[in-house]
Amino acid sequence: MTKGRKIESIILKILVYAAAVITFVVLLFLLAYILINGLPHIKPELFALEYTTENASLMPALINTVIMTLLSLIIAVPFGIFSAIFLVEYAKKGNRFIGLIRLTTETLSGIPSIVYGLFGMLFFVTALGWGYSILAGAFTMSIMILPLIMRTTEEALKSVPDTYREGSFGLGAGKLRTIFRIVLPSAIPGIMAGVILAIGRIMGETAALMYTSGTVPDMAKTPMDAGRTLALHMYNLSSEGLYMDQAYATAVILLILVVGMNTLSAFVARKLTKGK
């Protein structure tokens, strides 16, 4: 081996290790920085039911987030699961219509959130006349998470062995019965993992909600009321610049929620692969 090649190898090896160290140190630093600065500021008044300019409470935003998440899921999950069933169980391969569905789903998953926000503002808020409301935000979010739920459900359905289906058909069950009694139940962990991932996406979303659900810091009493979610609340706090301590504390809560959701999703997905 020539000397030059040996040096080349050593340099590349150093670069590989250096890059890995940078990646994981940046992540650790980010988490540690926010936790260290935020944890001391998590105080009881931050969870007051009413938002006032004194307490900058995150409770109303947290409740809005929960409502927003539930509504978005109620809209997106049936559509996502049903279209995945269509794609996996009914569609014939190579059909042009199927190609169109795949193309549009891919397009949806690449659209930036601000474009969703703008569309939500033009369609749900203005054209349908819903005004800034949780409902408009939830519909916008449901379009945004649709491709995610479709893809994870599709993968979960595909991972159900064909022998299950054949066994069910062999016992005289119809296609519909097979899907709902045999295929879907065995695909549930995979679908759940996707849904939980979608919850994380909704909780962390800001740009798509700014001009659909509005930035009012109060709790929404009905879905037609405006109200900001936790992520939007945090953006407003930090851009106003008056509540940096509360912004740190909100960042901690947001991180715990979103990271928790992602970890839960990974855990559920791992259960699925282990169970086989």
Binding site: L30, G204, S238, A251, L254, V258, V259, T263
Partner: peptide, 13 residues
């Protein structure tokens, strides 16, 4: 985890 952190938290950082 890096992929799951919301963009507003990155911005804040």
């Amino acid at each position: 985890l890096l992929a799951g952190i919301p963009s507003v938290v990155y911005g804040f950082f």
